[in-house]
Amino acid sequence: MTTGLSDNEAITREGGLHRTLGKRQITMIGLGGAIGTGLFMGSGIAIGYAGPAVLLSYLIAALIAVIMVFSLSEMAVVHPTAGSFGTYAEIYLGPFAGFLIRYTYWIQ
């Protein structure tokens, strides 16, 4: 017993979709593949040199990144303004911190 859609139902449901990729999208897919390959190669070399403790350091770094993302998302919900990092630094750390963060972003 099959519960899938027939060919005609699938075609009518997805009739408005376009199956095209732009030049930018293909470029981003290529960049993502190159970066991912580089990460796996770099991880393998680091694990070969330092052993499995590298995985623990990657786990700690990932935990810090997740905490930062959750913190920023909470601040974005409480203070929905433009200029996110600079505004949050100014609100929570003071005007000089906001100034410093904004110009650090500008320099980057």
Rank of each mutant, 00 (worst) to 15 (best):
N8F: 13
E9D: 14
E9A: 15
G15A: 12
R19I: 11
R19M: 14
L21N: 09
L21F: 14
G22W: 10
K23F: 09
Q25G: 09
Q25E: 15
I26R: 15
I26E: 06
T27P: 00
I29E: 03
I29A: 08
I29M: 12
I29F: 07
L31R: 10
G32R: 11
G36F: 07
G38H: 04
M41W: 12
M41R: 09
S43P: 03
G44D: 10
I45A: 10
I45Y: 10
I47L: 02
I47H: 03
I47C: 01
G48R: 04
A50Y: 15
A50N: 12
V54H: 02
L55R: 03
L55V: 08
L56F: 02
Y58F: 15
I60M: 05
L63M: 02
L63N: 03
I64Y: 08
A65T: 06
I67H: 07
V69C: 06
M75D: 05
M75S: 06
A76M: 12
V77F: 07
P80S: 02
A82G: 14
G83T: 09
F85E: 07
G86F: 09
E90V: 02
I91T: 08
I91P: 03
Y92P: 00
L93G: 02
P95M: 06
P95E: 15
P95H: 12
F96S: 12
A97S: 13
I101L: 04
R102I: 01
W106K: 07
I107H: 01
